[in-house]
Structures are given as C-alpha cells and as structure tokens.
Design a protein around this nucleic acid. Structure first.
Lengths: 237, 237
DNA sequence: CGTAGCATTGAGTGCTATCAACCCCTGTGG
DNA sequence: CCACAGGGGTTGATAGCACTCAATGCTACG
C-alpha cells in the first residue's frame, strides 16, 4: 500500500490518486499504466492564482484534480472576458494544439490541485496506443460539440434561459463525476457568471431571485439547491 | 495529362482536382498521395439540398469543394438554429467523432461539390502517417479556437459589432483561400445571417445600412464591398 | 409583365444595461 | 464585545438597444 502511494503520490500539497474525487473520469487514472510517466503529478495553487498567461508557449495540458479554473482573455479595452470554467476532471488547453500558445489566461477560482500532461509526450503515446488516440479525439470532438451548444445558448436564449442553462449544465457536469446531488456549490462569483453569460451582475441576480420566487431553486450565497429539476430543464428549452 | 485527370477525376458533375479553386488548402490535395484512396471523389448537390440529417450515423466527413454549406439544429419548437457556415476547403463533421452521429443537419446554400472522407479509413491513415495525424489534430483544435472566439462575439458584442465581425471573418476566410479581394459574395441569405448571429432579419438589415451610411462598406444584394477595412476591424474590436 | 420571395424601412414595445442605493456577511481593530 | 469598513450581492428607477408587427421596396424568374 505504501509503495503504491509512493509511485502515484506527487509533490507536497497533493493527495494520493486513490483518494481523488474524480475516480474513473480522471484521464490519468483511465490510462494509468501508459500515462503515469507522461504526467507530472499534482501541483497546488492558491485561490485566484494565475496558472498561465495568454500567448505564452504551449507545452502542457492542465487537468483539474480539485478546485476549479476559469479561462479568460483580455479585450483591447482591458476588460476581462471569461470563456470557460473547468471543474475536477476537465482538461484545459485543447485549443492550443493548433496555435502552439495558450489562447487564454488560466486562473484558479479557489485553492486548486492540477495535474500536468505534456503535449509532446502525449503525442508519442498516441502513436503507440490506440486507446489514447481515441480518447484524445473524443475529448477534442466533445469540446467542439459543447461549444456548439453554448453558441446556441448565447445566440437564441434570453437572460433567464441562459442562467437556467448554466445551472443545469453545472448539475450535469457534476452528475457525470458521480455527484448526483441537487445541491450545487458554485466555484465562481456572480460577477464571473455574468461575465461568462454575457450579462450583467444585476441581471444574474434578478433572474436568480426570479427562479427562487417560482420555487424552482434556492440560492444562498454560493450554494444552489435545485427544487424542481424538471421545471429548470423546461426553462432551458 | 489525360491519365492524371483520370485518376483524380471523379464521378460526373465534378471537376478535376487540378482546377479546384481551393488549391493548396484542400486537404485531399495536401495529402494527395496517401489520401487519394480514402476519398470518394466529388459529388454534386443542388441548391438547398439536405446532405445529411441530424442524428444519422456518422460515417464520413464532408469537405466543401465549391459552393457552400450550412449546418443547423432544430429546436423542440421546430425552429431552425444555424451553427455554422462552410466555405470551399472547410471540413464538416469534426464534432461527430465523439457522438458517432451527425449532430446537425447539413444543407447546401447553392449548387455545391463535396468531397467525402471516410472516418474509419482516415483513422487508420493517422496511425501510419504523422502528417495526417498532426493535420487532423490541428483542424480539431482550430475548430475549438474558432468557437471560443465566436462565443466571445455573442456574449459581449452588440448587433453592429456582431455583423461587422461576421463580415470581417468571411473576408479573412476567403483571404486564407487566396481570394484577397475586398469584394465578398455572400453565400447565405439575410435570414441565415440573422439566425446565425442570434439577431433578427430587420436588425441585420438596419446595421448593414448603418455601415453603408458610415461608408465602411457597400452592400448590394449578396455582394458586399469593403470600403474601409480598418474601420470595419475597428468596429469588431 | 407579374408574382413570389427576399430585403428594407418605420413605429411601438419589452428586455437588459446602466446608475444608484441599500443589504448582508466577514474580518479587523479598538 | 462591539463598531466599522469593505466586498459581494440584491433591489429599484430609468434609458437604450433589439425585437415585434406592419408596410413598402426590390429583384429574380417564369
């Protein structure tokens, strides 16, 4: 037992993989035998820490072990635009394969543990292991599919529907990771949600109270409890 | 000469690859030696023809040779939502690698020639040819990057900025294919543009006239001439 | 030449942004 | 233990942008 821990365990601040909350969805675990040497073990980051600056050379993917990340770009007017949230099990950096640089800034939303997966080594692994190849293709393709759905959300939906879709998608993502609870703890602030959804803080807040008045959910700070899942889905369309 | 034509030439309704307007950007041409046997040659489609229905099994990618495509999904209320336009040289179906079905309907915007690229055969080619592997990864990754930019456009920009961004992106895409002209011929209707941008036909029309009043461009039916490229870019932010 | 479909223009309404005030929770220092 | 300050979040009033509905103009095609 101790020896297993030793091989899988990483630097300080990290936890053994056996206790990782992600379980079967963790890419490193899925491909444990072949990937273990490609992965630097987990590294710890503090809340609001910048992990990567936009436009710096792309060398490795980051996989969220615990905590959460946001990615954002800064517009010419120096405003921040969030284009993604990443929860445990999510991989960041797929869009950098073509550009060779990170296209966004990557920042932690709370204290966070990240696994690192080197691009070059992953590529050579792909040539020797069809499972890895298929997995990476699937990840890329899923990313595209998700972005398509997100675009649909933006281009068609009103503020209430956008927020409902956002909350429901968080619920689904947690569910995929084995957390079937209707309780959701938001990793991000209202400002981050508003920014991401292309709305203002006030509109997000107003729609949250609106959803509470309909008794669809209960929001208390960063905690959200879904009372009527069906009704929430109904609003998402 | 005749024999070359014979090998590259396809079914009826198609043109020889040597005369293809796409030139070096055509994937089949780029990977000519290895891919020629993977590709069924060009097939012809009429205007507004449905090439693929959503949810049908995914077997092959489509590459636009000439003409143009749109992809769209139908919402539960039976309204159409366009999520992509595809110009000569573009490949359609990357998002289907993970889902194994086509996620959108694919429809022609005018008379169109399409090359077909079988998924299974491409995959085996990837194992034997690193260039193919890298190309496909790059295509997938570029797709993701483009979607990220599109999402940014939707979530932040006002109608005028969205339209400007749309026109400018068309200009850039044609430029990448060697058409450096400031003249653009729209393959799609105002309704399609509006649908894609999450706006109404009226708003698109009003913004077009607004851009003309500023003398930034001239719009005449499906033809758009960019008078002040710098000013157009300025509006895009 | 006439019709059908696409595109433009106009008037009025509604949704979301903006600006501003207030609330609540947390942490800090007296 | 309380007072206070500060940040995040909520609520309210107003303004502006984009949608809706409606009418008219344009163009392609038989």
């Amino acid at each position: 037992m101790h020896t297993i821990y030793k091989t899988l365990r990483s630097n300080s601040y990290s936890v053994p993989c056996e206790l990782c909350s992600i379980g079967g969805l963790c890419i490193p675990m899925l491909l444990n035998n072949s990937l273990s040497d490609v992965l630097e073990r987990k590294k710890s980051y503090l809340k609001d820490e910048i992990v990567v600056k936009s436009k710096t050379p792309f060398k490795k993917f980051y996989i969220v072990h615990s905590g959460a990340l946001k990615t954002f770009v800064t517009t010419p007017e120096n405003t921040e635009q969030i284009n993604g949230f990443y929860l445990p099990g999510d991989i960041v950096g797929l869009d950098s394969i073509s550009t060779k640089v990170y296209n966004s800034n990557i920042q932690t939303l709370g204290n966070t543990l990240l696994c690192e997966l080197y691009y070059d080594e992953l590529m050579s692994l792909i040539d020797s292991n069809k499972d890895v190849r298929d997995l990476i293709f699937k990840l890329l393709s899923t990313d595209i599919y998700n972005y398509q759905k997100l675009i649909l959300c933006y281009s068609q939906k009103k503020s209430e529907e956008r927020l409902a879709t956002f909350i429901y998608s968080l619920y689904l993502r947690y569910q995929q990771r084995g957390h079937t609870s209707l309780n959701i703890k938001l990793a991000m602030s209202r400002a981050d949600i508003a920014n991401y959804l292309g709305l203002t803080i006030e509109t997000v807040s107003r729609n949250l109270t609106k959803l509470q008045e309909q008794n669809i959910l209960t929001a208390k700070g960063k905690f959200i409890y879904i009372n009527k899942l069906e009704a929430l889905i109904e609003i998402c369309n």
